[in-house]
Design a protein around this nucleic acid. Structure first.
Lengths: 263, 263
DNA sequence: AAGTGGTCTAGACCACCTA
DNA sequence: AGGTGGTCTAGACCACTTT
């Protein structure tokens, strides 16, 4: 607030601790170094939340990098949710906001990518009639024939997840073969596997294991679990497959971080 | 596969449909236009999954933009998980991979940001002794005093979420006041509110409503719910508050998208 | 009018991968 | 060795916000 007008000494024009500089010989890119400098400055309180960061041009001048490089640095911490850019106004330090966070499926990917230790066991496969939710999800009339498949995925001989899926029964469609192919499930999750779908929607829901689920997965009946619903669309944008994955929170931890994490 | 070597006509040097161009008069930025062009090309199958996109320099030449602009366009669809950059090798079209997706807390934010229609009711607040999980989460010795607060959040007069939290009992700490302040909870989630924390960890778990929870939230006992656990750290990087939020999947839908969504 | 972020250019050099 | 993505520069103009 009160700018040092009464001081015995002159404030430096740059009040922030300027001991940190960008080392252009370092192998760490300049923008990453500057981003780290800004993170530390925010963490230290040099830029309290709500305050405005120096303009990108000023940062560029101050740290001896080009405007684009400074911009990239600010972009990094903006993506982290630490600051927020407002066009025409400035870049402002954000308060810690939980909603800036998101959860990713990294743990799931890591397991499914470990193909050598993965086994798929088909528990059931049959033709069923569409009804209720499956009609809706796949956009077919009631009593339309649907392929039904139920699979158990084992990782290192331990049950990992139960997958249930329906697909439109169209013999000419490659989806049917794919559904029956034991690799299709992993193909949807592991980069490099087969797919054939164009896009998909996902929904995460809380649920619990039925007695049968628990037995199959070696978990306790009534134990809480995630249900990851998925609808996949073929190249014609028609829903082609609907299903879900049942997995315990231990096998698929969903965690996130917010605020200033320096390491 | 079979490249037209036997054709009556010469293939254009650029096999892709070149009718789409970047319109520099448009208000849509050139990089966004190019990103959309690439999305459509991938969707159409011009670049099948696994194939390599033209080099950024080639795209720049082809569409009459600078290399940096082409790079930014590729960056956009790379962030969407549609393609993957490999340094020194090229940019490759990804197969649809579910794990590229992430879930965000947008719905939660939207409600908590709607301050006018939000009410907070404190159900309980007391001093309790640390034990078990609370010791671990807050890093204090057993029997240390902890502030305990339980709040009900109502949105448009309807119960929305139940929040339970513990904080280290340190009278000199501002956390205690904050815990008892009815605005603190929303402050953690809504940008612009009060906070005072530096960083936080989040964990999402499946659970169900107890009879009491269900009654308070107007839901059915045994109904499945999300439990969003949070630990917040003060400016000294010490855990200062631990708690969780109980919310039904209807009130906090967690959805994601993968693959090529053009709209 | 001045300042800010957002976009864009036309170059440059580097690290990395593939041949 | 040549091609690719990754970084960087020193400018430029624009759209937007604030004064």
């Amino acid at each position: 607030m009160e700018v040092g007008s009464s001081g015995w000494f002159r404030e430096l024009s740059t009040p922030s601790n300027n001991s940190e500089t960008v080392d252009k010989q370092s192998h760490l890119p300049a923008y990453a170094q500057l981003a780290q400098i800004l993170r530390r400055a925010i963490s230290r309180g040099s830029y309290p939340s709500g305050s405005r960061l120096p303009a990108e041009a000023a940062l560029a001048r101050q740290y001896g990098v080009s405007a684009m490089t400074a911009r990239q640095a600010v972009g990094v911490i903006a993506e982290e949710g630490l600051v927020r850019r407002v066009q025409g106004s400035g870049t402002f330090v954000q308060k810690l906001t939980v909603t800036a966070s998101s959860f990713d499926l990294g743990a799931l990917r890591r397991v499914l990518a470990d193909q050598e230790n993965l086994k798929v066991r088909i528990l059931r496969s049959s033709v069923e009639r569409a009804a209720g939710i499956t009609c809706q999800a796949l956009g077919v009339a009631p009593y339309s024939p649907l392929i039904y498949v139920e699979r158990l995925l084992l990782h290192r001989e331990k049950p990992f997840t139960l997958q249930v899926g329906y697909a439109r029964f169209e013999p000419e469609s490659p989806v049917v073969e794919m559904m029956l192919d034991t690799t299709v499930l992993t193909g949807l999750f592991v980069e490099g596997g087969p797919s054939g779908f164009k896009k998909g929607k996902l929904r995460l829901l809380p649920t619990s294991f039925s007695e049968r689920d628990a037995q199959l997965l070696g978990d306790t009946p009534g134990g809480y679990a995630f249900r990851l619903e998925h609808i996949f669309y073929d190249t014609g944008d028609k829903p082609a497959a609907y299903g879900w994955l049942l997995v315990s929170p231990e096998n698929m931890p969903l965690t996130g971080r917010v605020g200033v994490w320096e390491e």
